[in-house]
Amino acid sequence: MVRCSNNLVAILNIVTLLLSIPIIAGGVWLSRQANTECERFLDKPVVAFGVFILLVSLAGIIGSCCRVTWLLWVYLFVMFVLILLLIAFTIFAFVVTNKGAGEAVSERGYKEYRLGDYSNWLQKRVESNKNWNRIRSCLQDSEICQKLLDDGSTTPAQDFYKKHLSSLESGCCKPSDDCAFEYVSPTNWTRNATLPPTNPDCDAWSNDKNVLCYNCQSCKAGLLDNIKKQWRKVAVINIIFLVFLIIVYSVGCCAFRNNRNDNSYKRYP
């Protein structure tokens, strides 16, 4: 008679096996449909993750249903390593994203972002020219500033200043407020010749829609603020996933013990 823990391990792994199929299919779809290098960047990791889940699920199903003790041991070992890695990543994500936030500006609906406000580890990732050139290309391909470009010159200055802009829009699509540029349109600003710029980003700004402030420190800071928010969400999801994995791991340990007991009984009737 198959014991309850073995059945439960098999059921849970059948569910994860079924989930791995759309993950793999999604990765293959990305590799064929992606139009930019940035979109294709995700296809291989997604496929690899899906195949990993598929193989681990198969090991759990065969090990529990067919009473293959060594395969179930491999399954539990991989699960244990995965739990440790998720715990480490979750702690790391909270530590790295602990610093940094946008600065509220008087009479503005958006915030300003400064690169120095974020953790040193994150700063190093975007200060590398090699890394930033790729990131900048992705930001340009994603057309994050397109909404502001579409507005053209129809948005009055006071209405623009009251707009709620995302961290990327504020950092990459307009000059910093302390540059004191004169507003013409959301992506067209005139330098005030009477006020010398106090921020290096002022010289990096261009009204060219392909340049804008993509080379600014504020753009890098806006990206880090966006990453911070996303990583915090991922960390919370990881905690939920960890609870699920620990439960599955505990049930798997019971199934492993059942397999050993059954094998011992068959060996010594």
Score class of each variant (00 low, 15 high):
Trp189Thr: 03
Cys145His: 00
Ile14Trp: 01
Ile83Arg: 08
Pro45Lys: 05
Ser170Arg: 02
Tyr110Gln: 04
Gln146Cys: 08
Pro186Glu: 00
Leu82Ile: 13
His164Tyr: 14
Ile87Thr: 12
Phe89Cys: 10
Ile227Val: 14
Ser176Arg: 15
Ser142Glu: 12
Ala180Lys: 15
Gly222Thr: 03
Val74His: 00
Leu72Gly: 02
Arg3Pro: 06
Ile239Pro: 10
Asp117Tyr: 10
Cys213Val: 09
Cys172Phe: 08
Asp178Leu: 01
Gly252Cys: 08
Tyr214Asp: 00
Cys253Met: 15
Asn261Cys: 07
Asp141Trp: 09
Ser128Arg: 02
Ser218Pro: 07
Ile21Lys: 01
Arg114Leu: 07
Asn192Tyr: 09
Pro22Trp: 06
Cys173Leu: 01
Phe41Tyr: 15
Phe77Val: 15
Gly63Arg: 08
Cys4Asp: 06
Glu143Ala: 14
Ser264Ile: 13
Leu86His: 01
Ala101Glu: 14
Ser106Ala: 13
Ala93Ser: 02
Leu17Thr: 03
Ile24Val: 10
Thr194Val: 13
Ser206Tyr: 01
Phe52Asn: 00
Glu39Ala: 15
Ser170Ile: 04
Pro200Trp: 08
Pro200Ile: 02
Val51His: 10
Val74Phe: 11
Ala25Leu: 15
Ala88Arg: 09
Cys179Ala: 06
Thr97Asn: 00
Val78Glu: 09
Ser64His: 08
Val184Pro: 03
Asn192Leu: 07
Lys44Ile: 15
Ile246Leu: 05
Phe41Gln: 14
Cys179Val: 03
Val96Cys: 00
Tyr161His: 10
Val47Arg: 07
Leu30Phe: 14
Pro186Asn: 01
Val47Ser: 04
Gln146Ser: 14
Val96Met: 09
Lys147Val: 14
Pro22Phe: 05
Ala48Pro: 11
Phe92Ile: 11
Ser20Tyr: 06
Ser128Thr: 04
Leu8Cys: 12
Arg257Leu: 11
Arg125Leu: 12
Leu82Arg: 09
Lys44Asp: 02
Leu17Glu: 08
Val234His: 09
Phe94Cys: 08
Ile21Phe: 06
Lys44Leu: 15
Thr69Lys: 01
Phe92Val: 10
Tyr249Val: 00
Tyr268Trp: 14
Val126Gly: 04
Ile135Glu: 08
Cys65Glu: 00
Asn215Thr: 13
Leu168Asp: 09
Phe41Arg: 12
Asn133Thr: 13
Asn133Phe: 10
Phe181Tyr: 12
Asp208Pro: 11
Asn6Leu: 05
Phe89Ser: 05
Pro186Tyr: 04
Gly100Ala: 07
Arg108Asp: 08
Leu42Asp: 09
Ala235Asn: 11
Phe244Tyr: 10
Val28Glu: 04
Lys130Ala: 15
Asn215Ala: 14
Leu72Lys: 07
